[in-house]
């Protein structure tokens, strides 16, 4: 595989052990919340004829029974707690705990997305966490030790994060062009959201929908955030502002559409926050 030396040098440059440990603990915390806060046990009633698993679960004849789903949740929660605790001391459970928790959410999220629609809520944290899952370097929080073992999980996770947001924006332009922004598109999205009554309030969506200018401005802002995300790869100073922008984007999505993307917000804040610190990482 031919990779420009500059890219390779950046991706696998030195990093601080403390940052890797904090990344592990933070990711384990997000995985823990995702694993314990969703009622996976309710999936057990999914009929086999309506079960459409993703490729890696294609071997499963149907949704597992409730006991298996709960067992997976318990296993994932314990592993995530061990990963968080282990990160404090740079112990092996920090590495293996994160791996187990990641595998558990991969399985549970895969089962959740087997019920008819591809669900993206867990996708970002799973993708961003993958490099950290690959890493076997032991590191403890607060450590200032630096080495090439510690930097790449953060930078690879940051690259995954930037790619995902960028692709979200690119697909809008690819399939809709500038009409995604400069038409009534956002007003119709909000129209459907108000009708679905999924959001905690319809007031915000209704207010935006009532003004063509506000709707266009919100669509433009959303698309600008997504398309400009790769700037975080080259400008450290852009990372905290982009984290704030991501939180604003997902908060507004929840308030207007009722779509719950808090895991995306937390993941963005964690990765952009850690890599945005003054110390080199």
């Amino acid at each position: 595989m031919v990779v420009p030396r500059r890219v390779d040098g950046w991706l696998f440059a030195e990093g601080q052990a403390g940052h890797l440990a904090a990344l592990r603990a933070g990711l384990a915390g997000i995985l823990l919340l995702r694993i314990v806060t969703w009622p996976f046990v309710e999936l057990a009633r999914t009929p086999a004829s309506l079960f459409r698993p993703p490729l890696f679960l294609g071997w499963a004849p149907g949704m597992p029974p409730a006991a298996v789903l709960v067992g997976l949740q318990v296993l994932g929660a314990v592993a995530a707690v061990l990963a968080i605790a282990g990160s404090r001391y740079g112990r092996r459970p920090a590495v293996s705990g994160l791996r187990v928790a990641w595998l558990v959410l991969l399985a549970l999220g895969g089962l959740k997305t087997s019920t008819g629609k591809v669900l993206h809520n867990d996708v970002l944290v799973l993708l961003v966490a993958f490099p950290a899952v690959l890493s076997s370097a032991r590191a403890r929080t607060g450590s200032r030790v630096s080495g090439t073992a510690f930097g790449w999980p953060l930078r690879a996770g940051l690259s995954a994060l930037a790619l995902v947001y960028f692709l979200c924006g690119v697909q809008k332009l690819r399939h809709s062009g500038l009409a995604w922004v400069f038409s009534d598109n956002m007003r119709w999205i909000l129209h459907d959201a108000v009708a679905s009554e999924m959001a905690p309030t319809t007031a915000v969506a209704s207010a935006l929908m009532s003004s063509a200018a506000l709707s266009v401005a919100s669509a433009l802002g959303l698309l600008a955030i997504e398309l400009s995300f790769p700037v975080v790869l080259v400008r450290r100073g852009a990372r905290w502002p982009m984290a704030a922008a991501a939180v604003a984007l997902h908060s507004l999505t929840w308030v207007t559409l009722g779509l719950d993307y808090w895991a995306w917000s937390l993941t963005a804040v964690l990765v952009l926050g850690l890599t945005g610190l003054r110390a080199r990482c």
Partner: peptide, 20 residues
């Protein structure tokens, strides 16, 4: 390509109109 957790990330990518 949609191979979960990998995705094409086509979130709200199609323009909506008054006809659904």
């Amino acid at each position: 390509i949609e191979v979960w957790p990998f995705s094409a990330f086509r979130l709200f990518s199609t323009v909506r109109t008054g006809t659904a």
